[in-house]
């Protein structure tokens, strides 16, 4: 599968579209109020990926997911899910997709089980003969077996979230679109959701999981896309993203040699060179780290330690979106 970096300004081409679970081109939503919620979005999620769809609240993630599912009509642009155009192919595509959109929503006066029965009853493709089996399976899997008979309104936030996930897993799915699935869950519940996502991915399901809390989903993602103010400001494989911002070389030397070390680093072409007591560091850019060692030794600087620090995804996230969490606008 092709996983080349697709930046905000590099629209995904038609090449390899067949292997991508989600492809959008020029996707834009301008609300009647004039607010542009999603701006020229080129999203590409390869099949089999666990795609972390990140961004602060209000950055356009949910509107994007709603457009993917044809709940909201794009002002411009196209959506392809599982290789098929939306909304034209909705009847073929949607039964293959499990969703959690902007939190769970069920009839408060019906039990958890009755709510799942309702969703199954309206599904023209669901087999009524396997209904009980599938319902029990989904409820058990989310640990709701004991609470299945209770009215939904008595559920805690975490139980509601679990029921939403159970509904998404009523059938085996090819694609899961999970919008903030860890919302309202305690750390144990969050771990379980991560486990569930991993399990689904191992079974071959493509997962797009959105969150405004990077740390909660970072570990399960193979790919990451970062939204800010309606635009996809960075996307690609997770392992490459921390690299995109130049890593910093951090040299520990003696206080006397610090100035000399700084001159060597600057001479090599490192930028933003800073000296703090016996520590000198600078942004490596395109300079190979082994050159730094050689040059320092050559210049007679005592090197007591050398480390390369890649900015964490968290730092990239904060840098790109201007914040870690909270509301963007």
């Amino acid at each position: 599968m092709s996983t080349a970096l697709a930046g905000a300004d590099g629209p995904a081409g038609p090449v390899g579209a067949g292997v991508d679970a989600i492809v959008t081109q020029g996707l834009t939503k301008r609300f009647r109020s004039g607010q542009v919620a999603v701006d020229d979005l080129a999203l590409r999620v390869p099949r089999g990926a666990v795609y972390g769809f990140l961004g602060p609240n209000g950055s356009g993630k949910t509107t994007t997911i709603r457009m993917l599912l044809a709940l909201v009509r794009p002002t411009r642009g196209t959506v392809q899910l599982l290789g098929e155009p939306m909304p034209t192919a909705a009847a073929r595509v949607l039964p293959r997709i499990g969703t959690l959109v902007e939190g769970p929503a069920f009839h408060p006066y019906l039990s958890g089980r009755a709510n799942l029965e309702r969703l199954d009853a309206v599904d023209a493709t669901a087999d009524p003969r396997t209904r009980d089996h599938r319902l029990e399976g989904a409820l058990e899997r989310l640990g709701l077996g004991a609470a299945a008979g209770k009215p939904y309104r008595q559920y805690s936030l975490g139980m509601k979230q679990r029921l939403g996930l159970a509904a998404a897993l009523l059938h085996p799915r090819e694609l899961l679109l999970l919008d903030e699935p860890t919302n309202g869950l305690d750390p144990q519940g969050t771990r379980e959701v991560r486990h569930l996502i991993r399990e689904q991915a191992q079974a071959g399901t493509t997962v797009l999981v959105s969150s405004h809390l990077l740390a909660e989903i970072e570990q399960v993602c193979t790919h990451v896309g970062i939204m800010s103010k309606g635009r996809l400001v960075r996307s690609g494989e997770r392992s490459t993203l921390g690299d995109v911002r130049a890593a910093r070389a951090r040299v520990t030397t003696t206080v006397e040699h610090a100035t000399a070390a700084a001159e060597v680093l600057a001479g090599l072409g490192l930028s933003d060179v800073r000296v703090e007591n016996d520590v000198v560091d600078g942004v490596l850019g395109s300079v190979a780290v082994e050159k730094v060692t050689a040059a320092l030794v050559h210049a007679g600087v005592d090197v007591l330690g050398l480390a390369v620090r890649r900015p964490s995804l968290e730092q990239v996230f904060v840098e790109l979106t201007g914040e870690g969490f909270d509301v963007a606008r």
Binding site: A91, L94, P95, I97, E102, A105, H107, L119, V122, D123
Partner: peptide
């Protein structure tokens, strides 16, 4: 209002 409409539509129900 309950939010159940969006889940009906993505089942999908035409």
């Amino acid at each position: 209002a309950a939010g159940t409409l969006r889940y009906l539509l993505v089942v999908p129900v035409d």
